[in-house]
Each structure stands twice: as C-alpha cells, then as structure tokens.
Design a binder for these strands. Structure first.
Lengths: 124, 124
DNA sequence: GATGTATTTAACCTCTAGGTTAATTATGCC
DNA sequence: GGCATAATTAACCTAGAGGTTAAATACATC
C-alpha cells in the first residue's frame, strides 16, 4: 500500500484504463457496467481499477439500488498539476536546462557526451 | 514494460525516491553517488531508479571517466501538466462537480448517498 | 599491471499489480 | 419466494517492481 497521497495519485494515473475511466467521468456520473463497456477486461478487473481510483481519492461512489455510480473527484489532480508546475521552467528552457550545460558539455564533447546508452561511440 | 509514454511517466513519478531525485537535479547535474547520498537504500537500487527515470525520458546521463552524471529532462513533465490541466475546472468547482449532483443527490439522501464505503448508515 | 573508486549487472527474494473464473451479495420485479 | 441484473469478493495466476548482496565492468592513477 502506498502511504503518501501524491505517490498514490501518480500510481493510480499510471494505468491507461484508469485514466480513460476518469476521462469518461468528465461527462458525468456512470455505473460500473457503463464504465466497463469500452474495455475488453472483465468486470472484476474494472472493479479493482475503481477501488484504486477510490483509494486515491479520484472518484467517489454512490448507492442506487444495485448500482454503485461513480463520479469524478479531481482534488488530487490539483496536487499533480501543482507538483508538475514546479518544473515548468525546465521544460520551458527549450531543451531541459540547455543553457546550464552547453558551455560545460559542448566544448568537451569529443571526450564525453550524453548518449542514449552511455558512450558506445567510436572516439577520434 | 509500459508502452505509452504518459503511463511510463506517471509510473516513474509514483515513487517518492524518484521524485526526490528529480527535485535534487533541479540544482544541477549530479553523479549517481551524489544522488544516492540522501537515501538509505543500496547503490544498485538507486541505479535501477535512475534507469526507470531514464526510460521515462525524465533524465539524461553523461560520461565522465567512471562517473555517469545525470541531468533533468523535464519534457515529459509538460505532458503531465497538460494532462492534469484538462481537469482544472473539476477541482476548481470547489467540491468536484458539486453543482452537478447536488440537486440529484441531496434531495434523496435519505435513501442513497455517497459514503466512504457504501451505505452503511442506519436508515430512518 | 595492480589498486582504488564509480557504477552496473547478475542472481535472487518478496510483495503487489493486474488479470482471470467462479461464487457471493444486494437489489428490483413478478 | 424465485429470478434477473449489478457489482463485489474469493481464490488463483503471472509478471514486474523494488529491494538485497556479490561479482563484474570501466576508468584514473600509481
């Protein structure tokens, strides 16, 4: 079980099915069956996804006869947005802190350099 | 392995150690040993976290002698921020779509209602 | 080339995530 | 009460996450 709220939120959002469920809930309350319709997975699987979303505080659930309608609770998403905002200047600097390391790195690029999987290039 | 980029990003961010590493990288490039310092886990564990961050495109790695300095790559965080922004109006509506369901729900709250774990309350 | 430092890889462990099918619970309707 | 529908719980499976320790790799220096 994930203790801190932000981790629980990110973990809940890491699954595309769950993000799709949230997206669906934007257009209003829905039953479990309705939420399950677009997916090929079983009902219990959907049920588990909903439990994860509920634990993360991203949905709330009601009771109407045998239905348990879900609705969006976007509160934790504000935390996500706020958290990401702290990094805005780093994605704004066109290439991630480009200015910071250009002088350091570029003028010694024959020796070092940032490659995808380390330095496997031939060296002159 | 996670196929879509957004899922990989969220999954990477779901771990507090990894978020702390990103936060540290805001103050500039750092070696693996430097990044590991604040934590009690082993070097291989840190190495794995860095691999996750690298795969998610959140860091880039260099080569300097036996060091593999890391730097922040905030690109994917913009996607996170953009994604979250779509839900702004739902967390802005003070209590998550409050207006949408107040009429529907509140006037039948004796029968139904949104509780933490379903309707376990006594009914009149 | 031996030694020391930085880091990764290998091999392993445990726990959990995400899925399944079958059974159970809750409710409305006849 | 009996049946149909909605959803959850139970029991199970597999793959992967996150951690460990020990061994291997890469580089600088003496």
């Amino acid at each position: 079980m994930i203790s801190d709220r932000l981790s629980a939120t990110f973990a809940a959002l890491a699954d595309p099915t769950r993000r799709a469920i949230l997206a669906r809930l934007v257009s209003g309350e829905a039953s479990v069956t309705q939420l399950a319709a677009p997916f090929e997975i079983s009902m219990p699987a959907i049920s588990k996804h909903l439990k994860v979303l509920e634990r993360a505080g991203l949905i709330a659930r009601g009771h109407e006869a045998q239905w348990r309608p879900c609705r969006l609770k976007a509160g934790p998403l504000k935390d996500v947005a706020d958290w990401a905002e702290h990094y805005r200047r780093y994605w704004t600097e066109s290439f991630d802190r480009l200015d910071d390391y250009l002088r350091d790195v570029e003028n010694r690029e024959k020796k070092h350099g940032y490659g995808k999987h380390g330095d496997k290039r031939k060296r002159a």
